[in-house]
């Protein structure tokens, strides 16, 4: 005799879900999400597009030139490579003014961003990554 609670609406016996097939599907889904999902977060920095207007050249902000190990400030005061400390002494009090960080041609992006972040920590608010500067043109 068949009990009423085990009957489906059509009067047929309801089949239990096969646990083996279910776990197979769940494993595949787990593998998919484990392999495709990433937990790393990205940050971004807006790069300035080079422009060639005379206005821009007139009120050009000071340029901090980054070398492999040293720095220089493109002003009348310091042009030869010096330590970051000397550059900061020169720039102290100018944290609210714009500053362009330019790399010497062979300087890597990682080094440029490192300097950018250091200047950001020091309180510089209007920083930009500028065009590279070749050693020959100095």
């Amino acid at each position: 005799m068949i009990h009423m609670d085990s009957l489906g609406s059509g009067g047929r016996r309801a089949k239990p879900i096969s646990l083996t097939a279910l776990i197979d599907v769940v494993f595949i889904l787990l593998m998919f999400f484990m392999l495709t999902s990433s937990f790393s977060q990205w940050q971004m920095l807006e790069l300035s597009v080079p422009t060639s207007s005379e206005q821009a050249e007139q009120d050009a902000p000071p340029v901090l030139i980054v070398y492999e190990n040293e720095f220089a400030l493109l002003t009348d005061v310091i042009k030869r490579p010096v330590s970051l400390k000397s550059v900061l002494l020169e720039l102290s009090g100018a944290v609210n003014k714009p500053l362009v960080i330019s790399g010497e041609e062979s300087v890597t992006l990682a080094r440029l961003l490192n300097v950018y972040e250091q200047m950001q920590i020091l309180g510089f608010k209007h920083l930009q990554i500028g065009q590279s500067i070749s050693e020959k043109s100095e």
Partner: peptide, 21 residues
């Protein structure tokens, strides 16, 4: 620089450099 010079004089474009946190 060589890449950015391709975008010269197009201030309507914003180029966002992505880094890893």
């Amino acid at each position: 620089d060589e890449l950015l010079s391709e975008f010269a004089n197009t201030p309507q474009w914003s180029i966002e450099l992505y880094t890893l946190e």
